[in-house]
Design a protein around this nucleic acid. Structure first.
Lengths: 224, 224
DNA sequence: AGGTTTCCTGATGAAATCTTGACGCCCCGA
DNA sequence: TCGGGGCGTCAAGATTTCATCAGGAAACCT
C-alpha cells in the first residue's frame, strides 16, 4: 500500500480521492490545513504527497518547500490556475509535477505513478553500458562504438522513458504519456516511428534489434 | 473455494447470493445479526466479508470496525443509501469498497475479486519461483530453466489471472471475465487453447503438467 | 528571410496474434 | 458397449499490430 499525504481544503475533492485512490493501492491521509502538513508527514511517513496551492491558511509553495527540506518525498502540486509562472514556481521549489484542476482521475493516477517511479532507485543510474552503447543520462549523450550519436529531443525522450525500467516492458500508454503528454496516449503510430528511428541510430542491425525490443500488443523494452 | 462471510438481514438478497456465489467459487456463510458476525468470523475464518450497513440490531460500521480490529480481512460494505458521508465513513473505518443497492451480480463479483486481489499477499509477490520457472509480474517476464519465454498479451493475461490465487482454483467464468471481458464468460474453448499454449511454453512435460492444472468442470489452478 | 532540423502523417507490406472449427482422447453413465 | 460431455491439440484464415519510408508542415536557428 502506497502511503499518500493529501493537503487539500476542498472537501468534495478530498472525499472523491478518498473513495477512488484506495482502490488503486493508495492509503490516503488528508488534511485541509497546510500548517498540519509537516507534522503529518513526520508521523505518517508518506511515500508521496499531493499539495493544493490554494490553501486557506498558508501558501502551498511553502508547504512544498518544507516537505522537500526534510526528505526527498515526491510531491505533486494541484492548482486551479494554469499560469505558467505558477508551474515554474512549483517545480522550482521542488515539486515533481503540476496538475491543473479540473483533472481526470486517470491523469492523476498516471502522474502519481510517474512521480513514484522517478523516486525509485532505478532512476538514479546515470550511465548505461552495453556491448556497443554508452548512454549518459545527465549529459544526454549517446555513443555507439565510440562514436557520438545525435538524438533529437523526442528520440531522447523515448529512450529515457525506456531506460527508466531497464529490462522491463514499458507500456505504449506510459511511453506516450511520458513523452507526448496525456492527450496523446493513443497515438501509437508516433511511437513506432521513433522506435524505428532509435533502432536505426543505436542498433547494429536495426532489423534484428538486441536492445530496443518490441512486446507486441503491450509496449517496448530496453534490454541492457 | 473462497470463504465469504455475509452479514445481511434481507432474506431475499441472502438467498440470491447463496444461489449465485457458489457458482463463482465462493463458500458462503450468512448471518442476519451483526452481533454474530465476529463470532462467525473467528470460527469460519472467511477470506472476505460483505456487511450490510442497515442491520436491525447493531450499526454496520461497528461490525466493520470489529472485523478489521482482529484481522486484515477485506470487507465490502453494502448500503441502500448512496450518501457521500456513508461512503466516506465506511472507508475510513477500514472497509475496502462500498456497493450501493441495488447492484448487479457482475458488479458485486468484480468488486469482490478486486477486494481479494488487493488483500491477497499474492498481489505483493512480485516474483514467483518454482523448480523450473521464474515469473516476474512487474517486469512481465517469464523464464523457464533460465531461458526467457515470450508470452502474448492473452497468454500473459491468463497466467496473471491464475497467479492471483496461487494454489487455488479459478473458475473458467472468472478467468474469461478477467481476460476477455464479461461478454465472453461462456467461451470455454478460448481457455482450452490458451492453457494448452501456456503449458507448451511453461511446462517441462506439457502432457503431464505440474503447475497449470485442470480442475474438471470448474476451472484451472496454478500450483507453485 | 533563408536554410536546416525536427515532427507529424499516411501508405504499404510484413509479422504477430487471435479466433474458429475440426478431430481425437478419456471418462462416466446409460 | 455405446454415446455424450469435457478436455487437449492443431492449423488455417481473419484480424490486429508493426516496421519502414518519405513528403510536407512546423519549429528552430542564424
Amino acid at each position: 500500500m502506497t502511503r499518500l499525504l493529501l493537503v487539500e481544503d476542498d472537501e468534495a475533492l478530498v472525499s472523491t480521492l478518498r473513495l477512488t485512490l484506495p482502490a488503486h493501492g493508495f492509503d490516503v491521509h488528508a488534511t485541509g490545513r497546510g500548517g498540519d502538513a509537516l507534522v503529518l508527514a513526520r508521523t505518517f511517513q508518506p511515500d508521496v504527497a499531493i499539495v493544493d496551492l490554494g490553501l486557506p491558511d498558508v501558501d502551498g509553495l511553502d508547504v512544498v518547500r518544507a516537505l522537500r527540506a526534510e526528505s526527498d518525498l515526491p510531491v505533486l502540486v494541484l492548482s486551479a490556475r494554469d499560469a505558467q509562472h505558477d508551474k515554474v514556481g512549483a517545480l522550482d521549489v521542488g515539486a515533481d509535477d503540476y496538475v491543473t484542476k479540473p483533472f481526470g482521475m486517470d491523469e492523476l493516477l498516471a502522474r502519481l505513478r510517474a512521480a513514484l517511479r522517478r523516486a525509485s532507485p532505478a532512476d538514479r543510474v546515470i550511465v548505461f553500458r552495453t556491448d556497443h552503447l554508452v548512454i549518459d543520462r545527465t549529459a544526454r549523450r549517446v555513443e555507439r562504438d565510440g562514436e557520438q550519436v545525435h538524438l533529437t529531443p523526442t528520440e531522447w525522450g523515448v529512450l529515457e522513458a525506456l531506460l527508466r525500467f531497464p529490462g522491463r516492458v514499458v507500456t505504449q500508454r506510459d511511453l506516450l504519456h511520458d513523452v507526448w503528454g496525456s492527450q496523446y496516449v493513443d497515438e501509437v503510430a508516433y511511437l513506432r516511428v521513433y522506435v524505428a528511428q532509435l533502432r536505426r541510430k543505436l542498433e547494429v542491425l536495426p532489423a534484428a534489434p538486441r536492445h530496443l525490443l518490441t512486446e507486441p500488443g503491450v509496449g517496448y523494452r530496453f534490454e541492457p
